[in-house]
């Protein structure tokens, strides 16, 4: 359930493109044709699914405050989190190279369709952004970080697929000259982002809020009961003193 919730949240509510504008550069540059957009989108899903869990491990066992305690007690106070940018980007650049080599070796057909996009991905903000959000949102387990990586990859894939399809169709309409190309793409993306905002209420139904309120209420009631008890005890004492 936890996984499913994070999965849908990362696809629709925290969509990489529409909620946080990550990976906009390649989103705008490679969305002229659906076929290339699919290739890049698939490569992003793939790389995010590999790098986010890997960076989660790095963060958990090397970078966080106290993460080095497995080395011995004298390392328990080390806090290397200021190094996270450099570690994450180095991991991503290395992984992208590795993935490229492995894919080329074992699946030449996949390499032919993804190949040209893989080097581009090392500098795609969506990839580094995925790892940085994983760190700042404190995702608790390795499995969840994998879910988060795949989910946000799919969200990015959906976004670039949608805009590429729209841009293929828009070629046949008469856009005002000054808006052609980049301008209209920006405005369409804005409108799509407004559409995606409607997913915001998907996971937070009214139920949770009510539960929280009732919990708070019960706490307050208990406090009142306690104070009443205390008053009675005080009153009893005063009575006995009078007697």
């Amino acid at each position: 359930m936890e996984h499913l919730e994070l999965f849908f949240k990362s696809i629709f509510i925290d969509n990489m493109v529409f909620a946080t504008f990550l990976g906009m550069c390649s989103y705008l540059a490679v969305s002229k044709k659906v076929s290339t957009a699919v290739g890049l989108g698939a490569a992003v899903i793939f790389v995010l699914a590999v790098t986010v869990p890997l960076n989660w491990l790095l963060d958990q066992y090397i970078l966080q405050e106290g993460a080095l305690s497995w080395l011995g007690e004298e390392y328990a106070e080390y806090d290397l989190s200021f190094l996270s940018f450099i570690m994450f980007i180095a991991t991503i650049a290395t992984m992208v190279q590795l993935v490229e080599i492995i894919v080329e070796k074992f699946s030449p057909s996949l390499y032919n369709s993804l190949g040209i996009f893989l080097p581009l991905i090392a500098v795609n903000c969506a990839i580094l952004g995925g790892s940085l959000f994983m760190q700042s949102r404190e995702i608790p387990t390795l499995g969840l970080s994998l879910t988060y990586g795949i989910g946000s990859g799919i969200g990015w894939f959906l976004a670039i697929l949608a805009i590429a399809a729209i841009r293929e169709k828009i070629r046949y309409s008469s856009v005002p000259p000054a808006l052609r190309g980049l301008g209209i793409t920006f405005i369409i993306t804005g409108l799509m982002a407004i559409g995606f905002m409607s997913f915001g209420g998907m996971l937070t139904g009214g139920d949770e809020e009510k539960k929280e309120i009732s919990k708070v209420d019960s706490k307050i009631e208990k406090k009142e009961l306690i104070t009443e008890d205390a008053k009675e005890i005080v009153a009893d004492n005063t009575n006995t003193n009078k007697q």
């Binding site: 529409f18 000259p177 000054a178 808006l179 301008g183 407004i194």
Partner: peptide, 27 residues
Amino acid sequence: LSPMALIVVGIIIWIQRSKNTSLIEEN
């Protein structure tokens, strides 16, 4: 909200390209 950032930049591009028509892209 975030969508408006996109639309504002879109409008800036629109204004800029109407002033400088050599920048207009093909559809």
